[in-house]
Amino acid sequence: MADLNIIEAVNLALKSEMARDENVLVLGEDIGRNGGVFRATVGLLDAYGPERVIDMPLAENLIAAMAIGLSTQGLRPVAEIQFSGFLYPCLDQIANHAARYRNRTRGRITCPLVIRAPNGGGIHAPEHHSESMETFFAHMPGLRVIAPSNPARAYGLLLAAIRDPDPVIFLEPTRCYRLFKQAVEDSGEALPLDTAFVEREGTHLTLVSWGAMMHETRLAADALAQEGVSCELIDVASLKPLDMDTILASVTKTGRCVIVQEAPRAYGPASEIAANLAEHGLLSLFAPVLRVSGYDTVMPLARLEKVYLPDVRRIVAEVRKLLELAPVG
């Protein structure tokens, strides 16, 4: 058991699974000798050699396509896309091919691949490096979309993603890569891929988030606890398929819900969760479901990115608004 940050947990999961299964290989830009720009693949080249740790030309469409080709042959490729904005060239391969081969061949050709990418802003990165991409992929039938929020889940969910027989988009919280550590055991045990995690129990309201925003949401719950507000905290973790049962069970108990997402608001997962709560949980609700999110703007460059990013202040303000609409007790 070691104290690891998220990037170390990703690295541990890759090492561990490559040792366990010789069909696992990694490919991406600068992932070999350089160890990846965030160092997620450090040590893999020395441990497993250049045939299984493939430094790719700067062609993200090719990376996705090659991962598809490898996966159809029973290999388990884990492709790294260096920054979230570089996922756009992969959309064609993912939507038209990876997500569809099983269905269109009625199970004959399958794509057990993982595409990992850092997701979201907050690190003052250059343009196109800070996008939140989950909405694109969560809309595509045939995919799984995972967004871990802490080191233990990054480790356990990445193992599960690699072992899953279908294509998984694995979006890692860029700004949390080195933000905090957590004890992670290299147990080789995967976490479930279609389950939300109730991270903290509470009675007054349910806070729902995933990925990097879980960190802000945790801090908001801490601050609200100081004011005597008891928040139940849910890490969605799996955006597709979405575990509405866990969220509904919580909201049935608390009667109040705020959803926090970094991606632009319109048509995002927060909207999907809110719609499900309206359809299936309306009679339990004391107040409307509220969303805290990025704005429907182009992701600002570094100097204004804090204007865009939801933070503790915005989450707490939205919760106070909710509690005014439906006071506790």
């Binding site: 493939i54 469409n61 090719l62 396509a65 090659m66 991962a67 598809i68 080709g69 490898l70 996966s71 159809t72 042959q73 490729p77 391969q93 091919h97």
Partner: peptide, 8 residues
Amino acid sequence: PQAIGVAY
């Protein structure tokens, strides 16, 4: 380009 993965 998927053929690259298959051939690999």
